[in-house]
Amino acid sequence: MNEAAPQGGEPAAPRRTGARDPQLSSWFESTARQRLAGLLDGGSFSEILGPEQRELSPHLRQFGLPPAFDDGMIVGRGRLAGRTVLVAAQEGRFLGGAVGEVHGAKLVGLLRAVRSMAADARALLILFDTGGVRLQEANAGEVAIAEIMHAMLQARAAGATILGLIGGRAGCFGGGGLIAACCSGLIVSEQGRIGVTGPEVIESNQGVEEFDAADRALVWRTVGGKHRRLIGGADAFAEDHAESFRSAAIALLERPCRFDLEVTVAEHARLRERLARLGDADDAWAIWARLGVADPTRVPDMPAPEFLELVARLQDERRDAR
């Protein structure tokens, strides 16, 4: 172990290779557009409502904030290993990827459009990078989250596969966490964080004894990608580059994906059982130990290949999360 590495393990530093190849540069450090370029088949992305269409937020100017030409949400279509997919990518650097009126409406429109694809080929990928609803347009943002979830469930009922990819710098929180929970499957990297209430909000509401948001190792082992993968909150683990997200997405798209009453009832039973078994654990380490991890404190420092072997060994602990 590197002497300089923080004790207890923050996630490995994002790759800073400076590589020109969009498939190999760090997903965490990339912009939403760079992620799309690395994820999809080369040159296959075509944008819907691109920046030159100027669908700007009607609200931000009132707060003295410059808008973004794409409102932090890039939507379009492309190909993944030859298969046509719809894609939506949030730009985490613009207002923390927060969901406003236009941002949300673009995703709702895309989710409705997936139902007009051929019945056996309905696929949509959401590249999450968001802290949740945009405070400057809170009501419109909250409504957008509800509309997105409604459109997602309609699309899934129509047979669509909706995959969420999480590994951006803003993580996936607030309404973003709710949307992620409505996906058919999630792919997460070690740097990816998934939750509803973020660490800082928990600390300010419940006190530092409940949750110390400054303790980065605690934050990552509670909401980070490895924990989500181990407890069945995410379906695949990717390394911090587009090539790894890409191969995980191709594999998950091949998996049959049902969405009906039987699946939902089974999922609720699984969550109830998980809560009964793990609900009194006071730290992720205790949860990992109960899941059968021999040395839980090693998990944060574990290199990806070793972590993937561990996940494979614990296979029956992570039955299909949805």
């Binding site: 912009t31 557009r33 808008p67 973004a68």
Partner: peptide
């Protein structure tokens, strides 16, 4: 090229 976008508002 008809148009191009660079950078992010951050």
């Amino acid at each position: 090229r008809a148009h191009a976008l660079v950078g992010v508002v951050g």
